[in-house]
């Protein structure tokens, strides 16, 4: 591990150590926060007892579906918009301000249409993630060397094959960025949706535990959620870096 990596590790350990001590000696009262070790213990016992398995799987399934939908639709729409510069110019302001609006205010509307089940959660997650993927696809396609498009024309590839064989691989580093953002945004939307209106899922359980003053369950679930998201985004981040540096070398 690099020197910076070691320092990071020390900082993280020091942070959780300080939190632990402050909780133990009562600077932070137990109603506000429980010590990190107790969070881990609460999570461990919940995992062993299987009391949260169903909710975790429900949220996971919805998030995966939302990510898949936003990545796929985002890429396809990105390729189409990239091929039509006029349309792109028109839509540009929309893309630029999309994330300034809390899109999940549309969640209740989706609930009215589809009922309280997984469909509105998946759709709101996909709505949140799709534009990030679309923008990254556009950026990626902008960086594809022109010579690639020329050779696609030389080989007389049809639009579908040129998208899959030429555009997809050569825009890959930026597409990974898009996937990473789509994951982050989809998680936010799915969990926020579960907070507001849902009968299942990890967000629902956290909100329920909060209203119930059940801080062990709440912090255990928060720990699980934050750890999972951090691991996923950090792995995608490292993958992204590796692809970017490999492309830069070529």
């Amino acid at each position: 591990m690099s020197k910076a990596g070691w320092i990071r590790l020390v900082i993280v350990i020091a942070f959780f150590g300080a939190l632990e001590i402050m909780c133990r000696i009562g600077w932070i009262d137990r109603l506000t926060m429980i010590p990190p070790t107790e969070m881990a213990e609460a999570l461990w016992s919940m995992l062993l007892a299987g009391s949260i398995t169903e909710d975790v799987l429900y949220s996971l399934r919805n998030t995966v579906a939302a990510v898949a939908l936003s990545v796929l639709a985002g890429f396809v729409c990105g390729v189409i918009v990239h091929a039509l510069p006029r349309l792109r110019r028109i839509l540009d302001p929309l893309f630029a301000s999309y994330y300034a609006v809390p899109v999940f205010v549309f969640y209740p509307l989706l609930v009215v249409i589809f009922g309280i089940n997984a469909t509105p959660l998946i759709l709101i997650g996909a709505m949140f993630g799709i534009v990030a993927m679309l923008i990254s696809t556009l950026t990626g396609l902008d960086r594809v060397p022109r010579v690639m498009f020329k050779s696609a024309r030389m080989f007389q590839l049809d639009p579908l094959r040129s998208a899959l064989l030429i555009k997809l691989p050569s825009a890959a580093p930026h597409l990974i960025t898009g996937v990473k953002l789509a994951v982050v945004y989809s998680v936010i939307a799915v969990v926020a949706g579960e907070f507001i209106l849902s009968s299942k899922g990890i967000g629902h359980r956290i909100a329920y535990a909060y209203n119930d003053f059940d801080s062990r369950t709440m912090y255990g679930l928060l720990l699980l959620l934050l750890t999972a998201v951090t691991v996923v985004t950090m792995s995608l981040h490292m993958w992204e870096h590796r692809l970017h540096s490999r492309w830069a070398k070529q």
Binding site: M33, A192, V229, T230
Partner: peptide, 14 residues
């Protein structure tokens, strides 16, 4: 990139 929505109970408690 942490979904900070999840931290709302903590913010409320603090």
């Amino acid at each position: 990139s942490v979904p900070k929505v999840t931290l709302y109970p903590v913010i409320l408690l603090v």
